[in-house]
Design a protein around this nucleic acid. Sequence first.
DNA 1: CAAGAATGCATACGTTCGTTTCATACATAC
DNA 2: GTATGTATGAAACGAACGTATGCATTCTTG
Lengths: 238, 238
Amino acid sequence: MRLPLPGTISRDSQLATRVALLDAAERLFSQNGIEGTSVREIIKAAGANLGAINYHFRTKDRLALEVFARRLEPVNRERIARLDALEARGGRRKLKLEQILDALIRPALESEEQGAKNCDDFMRLISRSFQEPNPEVKKFVEQQFAEVTRRFDAAILRAVPGLPPENLFWRMSFVHGALHHGLQTWLRFDQMPYAMLNPAAVKPDREGLIQRLISFMAAGISAPWSKPRLGNTTPDRR
Amino acid sequence: MRLPLPGTISRDSQLATRVALLDAAERLFSQNGIEGTSVREIIKAAGANLGAINYHFRTKDRLALEVFARRLEPVNRERIARLDALEARGGRRKLKLEQILDALIRPALESEEQGAKNCDDFMRLISRSFQEPNPEVKKFVEQQFAEVTRRFDAAILRAVPGLPPENLFWRMSFVHGALHHGLQTWLRFDQMPYAMLNPAAVKPDREGLIQRLISFMAAGISAPWSKPRLGNTTPDRR
DNA sequence: CAAGAATGCATACGTTCGTTTCATACATAC
DNA sequence: GTATGTATGAAACGAACGTATGCATTCTTG
């Protein structure tokens, strides 16, 4: 991919170790965080050697960056591609809010183009990416996020005429939070104590989750934006 | 607070070091995560000694647990207390959804009862708590979360009659995600590149954030729950 | 086939980690 | 005053960390 110019044609197993390291790191990072994972755990899980990390990625930080980049970039590319397709097909017609949200959500949940092997791990990683303290990773994630946000903000503003842009900004923040937390809950459903204890909690299939997300978000974004008055819930201490 | 029974009357400065350690750990954990923070950084920031950690908390893990517990418990107690008050005052009348959400959201944003000194740090910590890999901390957080969820689920089910419980479960997951991510965005607003680049993004005061959260969530929870049909957004690959 | 770069592997280095130990200072109780 | 137990200070422990180095192996190229 970005090897230091071999001058030789790549063999079939050339990237095997590299990919194994990325896969193992992705799984471990998603479970224990970057700081909580040692390079020795990674190479052990990947069946590789310590030197392989130095050779392929130089440092642990660059490995972490590539782990995130490998997954985040295709997802965000797909999001924008789907939005492009919607707008191209829609012509001058106004897009439905649900369609736009579908283009935003679905790529984050459908990542089987990569092989679906550890697709769960990568989804966990996406959910975690926003909380990542590592400065380089954080910068990358925010940068990726910024472009997607710009495109989808514009599209939604057209779909929901009259919505103040300042209001949309915050609602999109809520949308992303709902997406990531909902995804996390869905992926770890079987380990969630409050999900296991709640007889009403059932895990839908992926399409069911998408539909639930869309209907929730669409309603939230379309909520009345004149500051609603509350029915005096608290005597407003102070 | 839980000293090994002194037998002596506590002096004024008895807990000073302990609190300083908790404060410093809270700030550093919220910025760099638990694994990303060393005990040496903590004692340096607290102006204490390495032995103090061992003396007051025994291990770093127990320190981390106390850091979370010190903030999470009061917030969740306050949430339930407010819900109790609402239900007691409401009598047999049906509560409004917005009132219930207010009781859920406000305690997470108003923590000045503690002194407001590093209230921002603690709010960041709350937002981060769900992603925390540390098993003990995770267990504690989920356990705390479970009780709040149970109470508020029941209240909302009464306020939104007909909403299938299975549907509420997921919408509450989205609600918590929106709350935590929105809170995170609000707290770090000035460092968010996509917020700074977006001329439409303005940071409301705390009350403004609460109102925006409530209206978004209320609409999301009240969204129609018959599975909505999409206007064919994707040709459904495969 | 031989030359030589590209890659995988074993080991070691220097640092930092969490934790422990022990001595000391202080406040209270008898 | 002396004994008792709490709190802090300085120093060091073994273990694990990320990284670097050197040699063996593998495959491409001429």
